[in-house]
């Protein structure tokens, strides 16, 4: 999977590394700002009131 993505990144080595880092940052941002804020309130330890 990761090998396949790496082979499909364009350009020389340095450009590929940069593109890979941007991809990783994008996925982490999507998780942190969209997926986790949606998921977190569903966890049991957020029920603190009677």
């Amino acid at each position: 999977m990761y090998g396949w993505i790496w082979r499909h990144l364009p350009g020389p080595f340095a450009v590929r590394v940069l593109a890979a880092l941007i991809l990783i940052a994008g996925v982490v941002a999507l998780l942190m700002f969209a997926v986790f804020p949606w998921l977190e309130p569903k966890l049991p330890f957020n029920d603190v009131s009677v």
Partner: peptide, 13 residues
């Protein structure tokens, strides 16, 4: 003061 109990659960307060 109220919070969840056990620490990571929601079965009690």
């Amino acid at each position: 003061l109220t919070t969840c109990n056990p620490e990571y659960g929601n079965s009690h307060r």
